[in-house]
Amino acid sequence: MRAQSRIAFILLLTPLLLWLGLLILIPHIDMALISLRERISFGVYETSLLQYQKALTEPLYLRTFWRTAVMSVLATAITLLIAFPVAYYIAKMARGRLQQVLFMLCLIPFYVSELVRTFGWMILLRETGLISNLLQWAGLADQPVEMLYNDAAMMVGLVYTSMLFMVVPLVTTLESLDDSVVEAGYDLGGNGLSVLREIIIPHAMPGIVSGCIVVFMLSLGNYLTPTMLGGKDSLWFTEMIYNQFIVRSNWELGAAFGFMLLVLSSVIVWGMLRLTGRTLQETMG
């Protein structure tokens, strides 16, 4: 019996260890090693910090790096602002069947691939697209309007893509809020704003933080949306990594970029947890 449960434990643990080792640990160690070398000539490498020096001194790289960070934070904030009322409605105001239907509606867009969803936005927003034609027909515009390829279009795409990942944790935490606690908030003299600030938001904080972390990471690592909807100024850091690895075959610089992105997301997530006074265990478990 003892031996059996031991075997079961090892069998269950093996996939996890394989996954951690093969897909996360080894590639990252290799990436770290690649990022720390300098190509002297064909097949000859030397260890150096040249790649990081390049990444941190070249204005385009640095600017893209910060822009990606700031835009991801912005996308996370906008997603939270839109998702919170939606989640509150689903969790606290909708009842029974309506609740299920609304929740399903949030999920349905994710039945198709991200690529197809992004094309959907292109159909709506492009020069010959639906909205442009509608504006012309209504007489609000006298020529085709191009709404694609700018930061706003990209932001719309990012928020749309991340919506579900914010709504789900928020609905879960808000559902656990006892209605009578909210009523008590009003009964003791609170108005909508103070009940929201003192009772609902503090209660929803675990959901807010975990939703924000997921959405921020998804936005930061997004490749499709910024490429398809963003303009030539909307260069995303993932695009630069792609360029270095695939277009320029400069694996050394690409690996350095990859590590910078990892550090950036770790620092911002850590900052977010510090700001809200939570630990990762509390938020995730």
Binding site: D178, S180, V181, E183, A184, G185, D187, L188, E198, I199, P202, H203
Partner: peptide
């Protein structure tokens, strides 16, 4: 003012 069935104290405070 009302004392609720399950008291509804604010757990976050």
């Amino acid at each position: 003012n009302m004392v609720f069935q399950h008291l509804a104290l604010f757990p976050m405070m």
